[in-house]
Design a protein around this nucleic acid. Sequence first.
DNA 1: TCGTTCTTGAGAGCACTGCTCTCTTGTGCG
DNA 2: CGCACAAGAGAGCAGTGCTCTCAAGAACGA
Lengths: 252, 252
Amino acid sequence: MVAGSGGACPERCSPLLHLLSRSAIIVAMTATPRQRARAQAIEDIKRIAREQLASEGSAALSLRAIARELGIVSSAVYRYVPSRDELLTMLIIDAYNSLGDAVEAAEAACARDDLAGRWRAIGTASRDWAVARPSEYALIYGSPVPGYHAPVERTGEPGTRVSMLLMALLADVQRGRPAVAVAGPLGGDFAVLRDFLGLDIGDDLLARGFLAFSALFGVISFELHGQYVGSLTDCRAHFDHQLGSLASLLGI
Amino acid sequence: MVAGSGGACPERCSPLLHLLSRSAIIVAMTATPRQRARAQAIEDIKRIAREQLASEGSAALSLRAIARELGIVSSAVYRYVPSRDELLTMLIIDAYNSLGDAVEAAEAACARDDLAGRWRAIGTASRDWAVARPSEYALIYGSPVPGYHAPVERTGEPGTRVSMLLMALLADVQRGRPAVAVAGPLGGDFAVLRDFLGLDIGDDLLARGFLAFSALFGVISFELHGQYVGSLTDCRAHFDHQLGSLASLLGI
DNA sequence: TCGTTCTTGAGAGCACTGCTCTCTTGTGCG
DNA sequence: CGCACAAGAGAGCAGTGCTCTCAAGAACGA
């Protein structure tokens, strides 16, 4: 974070390094022992980093502390991770994918025509994941840690997995209903988005979807950040109730 | 943040120090020259801290850099601020109060019987403030910076000013309508809250108020954290639209 | 007006951080 | 089986928060 933190890490770390966690199993099967050891070391670093994150917060994430935990000198860590910021980016991508996996699995377990069930599954799985991993949730839905958020070109795809599920759900909700347009610049944005997604979702429902999505993570964020402390004791019950209100908003 | 960061700062900083910014004018009028100079120094420190926050992010907030900017050695800053974390807490309280001032002023400018106007005023003033001071917004509605959020016993009161406005509005909305109860633990929480506030707001409307409040700041957070990048170009129009949807949710 | 007190700032120093460099060792690959 | 290269060690630079001591000076009471 002090100087040259955005560098390319020449001949130290592969540029494909951030993909390792997703293909860790493949690497473990096919690669050479050296590659397997390397992948294992990176996984160890990220595991300890997540533990640090959970116990101390993202500001206290320290490569030197990770090195100590691993029984290794600090400079050795840089063989596997180009910088602290890069490690944070890797953790952010992992968190997005972990959340995406959990929500996709929950949603996929619902009957396709059970629209309300799919919405509840998306919401409940999101909250369950967030409550189980508050520090990782803060990493992706909290304020940007190092001054700027992680590079969009790398976090973008995994960051949209949950919203893509919602979009598919909205398309199913829209089916057989009349599309209601919205005037003004918002309608223009929605037209472009509809074109990009290739899904037939009317302006009005799209707007309601955006609101439901924002409210969903707004409620989760408020719960995790302690904004309800002193007024709500049963956050789970509150969340379930609001999930129902948002379902009504979506017309399901 | 390393050791003893929660200490009391004996005979260096008054325990009333965090109140200085609210009573800065009073101090400037009545106090001795020394007290005035002290209050001015603290204001200077906080001003530079806010600038650093805006340009580099909360993780890069550095007391040494503040000292450099002031043309002062780093240890001298500790005459005015007990620790970095304490400075962050002072900034958080100031931010809550700044937001509270802005929203209260906007809401007070509306006719009391213009319920929809008061809701829009609360929402719009909140967003305007957040867009104008994104780094300070991240401080209070982002993820906790140093691992734990600021002490609730000190941020609590200023942190509830906006929600108190909403509660008063909800009470006016409720007037002359039948209260709808909600079963389960949520109803119990709401009963306690109603008793504490001394406002007649039915369970159902209270729940809708919580949702509207959470959604309001959820939408603002998503906008500021770049979650809408790539799909929305006119965030202001989107926000206005959702403000209307939430007004409908509240029945105004 | 004078002396005292108490605040303020300087400076050194400790322990920590991220990160870079060089050097040596030993493992795994061809 | 020999060699290349990855991996770790260690020193070092610049930065951080924070503590301590010391000297100067300003405000205050007598």
